[in-house]
Design a protein around this nucleic acid. Structure first.
Lengths: 230, 230
DNA sequence: CCGGATCCCCAGGGATACTG
DNA sequence: CAGTATCCCTGGGGATCCGG
């Protein structure tokens, strides 16, 4: 092998900057590129991921785009890349503290974006983890002292669970036995119902099936549309 | 993928979409393009603006870019465009409610971006309004019952005022007579000092001049780096 | 199969000139 | 002042290829 005295081991991306001494502009210098925040979303929702996990969680992304973004994210200190021990024995990507600190940013974008979810687009991809984060991030238990309860969500074949307990709204992907309430319908209907964008009547009109303790929906209280930072 | 409404009477941009039924992705479909959020920043900080006001507030933007973004923003309902009456007698751009609701998004991005403000870049643009929003958005009065006070900030020739009164931290661009405290220095030093990123000693080491009631700085309490949405 | 790298092509973005 | 028009370049999308 020839040694060209060139160091190819350190990736150096050309970073396009707004060149403004403003924390918003500097933030956008780092996270403003296409796909970047969605990669952070996946790592926040899924935890450490393999390349393929990210690819599957980001329908529509090109592999070269994902690859180059991961390098940039590593270079800017938002993720770390490490070799997982057996039995995984592959490369894992994980958020650093700086990267995980973007959660409030994603929450606010997602909260703002909720109002644009009112139409179904046939070719939109949909995943259970996206169904799960909405009630966890955008609702609170209106009756924190109420009894523990679970709600099974089924939307477009994707399943997620909402658990009300101790005043918190927790969610995860998957199935629960003996839920107190089952909501089955289109992504729009199920998401709309649990985030308070539509009511029970409208959800049923959209073809949803709701079985169990309907009044549990009253406990899912949407958080204000424009909360203060503090 | 692309929306191909062919309508010749109304401007219709081809909106690139992530095609994911996820409120974060849908939000980014609208606000994720380059310059979009910085235009919203200017309209939030300055109020209704003329084209030239925006151009001046967005150093580095190309006029065609600004023009096309304004059309997109109008089309997506984030701004309105209207003819101002005399004596202005020109077109003004103003945020709609939907557009103004992006303030929490900008706050979180700016709060996250603060940590990347630690280096001065010689060719970065700087404006007084960017100096002003930081203490207003990212600090609180640690002594809400304390006496009213004003702080004059001077950074890179740009002037802004901080007013502590009634528990609130208000700021504006410009000059105040008889401030209780005057901070004069580089953008990095002044911003770092008022947002709690650096201390008085470090600010002085960076060449800052601080005159007046130094203890007023104790009242500027940085808000937590990762506050909950609620 | 996993984890990318490479190539091609087009659209989005940037700089500047120009016009009502 | 308020944008258009033009040119050019780079970033991003899509498919394919390749070593482990």
């Amino acid at each position: 092998m020839f040694n060209h005295h060139l160091d190819f081991s350190v990736y150096h991306a050309r970073v396009r900057s707004y060149d403004q001494y403003c924390s918003i502009a500097r933030g956008l210098d780092i996270i403003g590129d296409r796909w970047t925040l969605l990669i952070v979303r996946e790592l926040l929702l899924q935890g450490p991921c393999r390349f393929t996990d990210l690819k599957n969680g980001l329908p529509g992304v090109a592999t070269n785009m994902l690859s180059s973004r991961l390098k940039e994210l590593e270079q800017t200190g938002l993720i770390t890349r490490y070799d997982a021990p057996p039995p995984v024995a592959t490369v894992l990507y994980e958020l650093t503290r700086d990267g995980a600190d973007l959660e409030p940013v994603l929450k606010q974008i997602g909260l703002w974006g909720l109002r644009r979810m009112t139409d179904d687009r046939a070719d939109d991809a949909f995943q259970a983890s996206w169904l799960a984060y909405a009630p966890a991030w955008f609702t609170a238990d209106a009756n924190p002292d109420g009894p523990p309860a679970t709600i099974q969500l089924i939307a477009g074949g994707q399943e997620a669970v909402i658990a009300l307990e101790g005043g918190s709204v927790r969610t995860w992907v998957g199935h629960v036995d003996h839920p107190d309430l089952v909501i089955d319908g289109s992504p729009r209907a199920v998401l709309g119902l649990v985030t308070g964008m539509i009511d029970l009547k409208a959800a049923k009109a959209l073809g949803s099936t709701i079985r169990g303790k309907h009044q549990l929906l009253q406990r899912l209280h949407p958080i204000p549309a424009t909360p203060e930072v503090e």
